[in-house]
Design a protein around this nucleic acid. Structure first.
Length: 302
DNA sequence: TGGGAGTCAATATC
DNA sequence: GATATTGACTCCCA
């Protein structure tokens, strides 16, 4: 499958990165953290549950030893890893005959371990299948069960896959629209209006990356307004609050966003995308810190 | 029961 | 190895 990922958020691997930060601070996996930072929803559109990671982030920010603790965690992880590695080298036999490596036992059935953990192979939709689904979405964002059945049989997919695809697509389109709203608000007033509603509308920039999202642009489907070109986003992102060097000392060392020109051979859009994501994160941090200093417990309770 | 929100986790990409 | 993408899943609500 061909994917274009543009750029990556450099969260200074020397300290942690999305995985460690997500798992130890936010209670989220790396993928979720990446998503959260790249496409944050406005605060007022978040459910209580959706706000939790930001509340955790705020608590972490208000902890004077936050970075130290993260570094400790990293050290501990490394130690554990080395220990595991060392023991697996010294003991030529694994402790338990579990599914450590690939299912491979001499002469035996390769399925022996599978009853333990039946893993469904991940469905990867072919570009043509995605195209067909998108066309169907443009005609009907909320297809009837009958339409779903038809689509599934036409594309030789499971109906659940088609249902999931529509769910995911709608939800991801919606998020893109939220980002647009925020950008429009930011472009109008310079920065999102103060509201006293916690870190409202901290998201100020988005990359709107990837072929999927681009192709969704301008879809005529019901409730699917057209979306603006990336250049508009660039402008909004660069004017996002928090980009002006708000790095909060230790935080800055945790989330370092190099401002250097893109390295040779890299996607030329890389640095601007990086900036946009940095703007997102800095904006979130900025508002969390502001909220923390204002002490609005009612907004943070969950 | 269908849809939205949030998330996981496999995998692609850099 | 770190990050981005995305299909699948759970939970909650109307």
């Amino acid at each position: 499958m061909l994917k274009h990922t543009g750029s990556r958020l450099n969260m200074s691997p020397a300290v942690g990165g999305q995985r460690l930060f997500g798992e130890t601070i936010l209670g989220l996996t790396q993928g979720s953290v990446s998503d959260l930072l790249a496409r944050p929803k406005p605060w007022h559109k978040l459910s209580l549950k959706g706000r939790e990671p930001f509340v955790r982030m705020q608590l972490w920010l208000s902890d004077p030893r936050n970075v130290d603790k993260l570094m400790d965690m990293k050290r501990m992880e490394k130690k554990a890893y080395m220990k595991r590695r060392h023991s697996s080298v010294s003991e030529s036999q694994p402790v338990e005959p579990g599914p450590v490596g690939p299912d491979f036992n001499q002469g035996g059935s390769p399925q022996h371990h599978q009853h333990h953990h039946l893993k469904k192979p991940r469905v990867v939709l072919a570009p043509e299948e995605k195209e067909a689904l998108k066309r169907a979405y443009q005609q009907k964002p909320y297809p009837s069960p009958k339409t779903i059945e038809e689509l599934a049989s036409q594309l030789n997919l499971k109906t659940s896959t088609v249902i999931n695809w529509f769910h995911n697509y709608r939800s991801r389109i919606r998020r893109e629209l939220f980002i647009e709203e925020i950008q429009a608000a930011a472009a109008e007033g310079g920065s999102p209006r103060p509201s006293g509603h916690g870190p409202e509308e901290y998201g100020a920039a988005s990359e709107n990356e990837g072929p999927d999202h681009k192709e969704a642009t301008g879809e005529g489907g019901a409730g699917t307004p057209s979306r603006s070109p990336p250049s508009h986003r660039d402008a909004a992102a660069s004017s996002a609050p928090g980009t002006s060097g708000h790095q909060g000392g230790a935080i800055g060392s945790l989330f370092s966003f190099p401002e250097t020109a893109p390295a040779a051979g890299r996607n030329p859009r890389d640095s601007s995308l990086r900036k946009k994501k940095a703007a997102n994160l800095n904006n979130i941090i900025h508002r969390l810190e502001k909220a923390a200093s204002r002490e609005e417990p009612s907004e943070w309770e969950f």
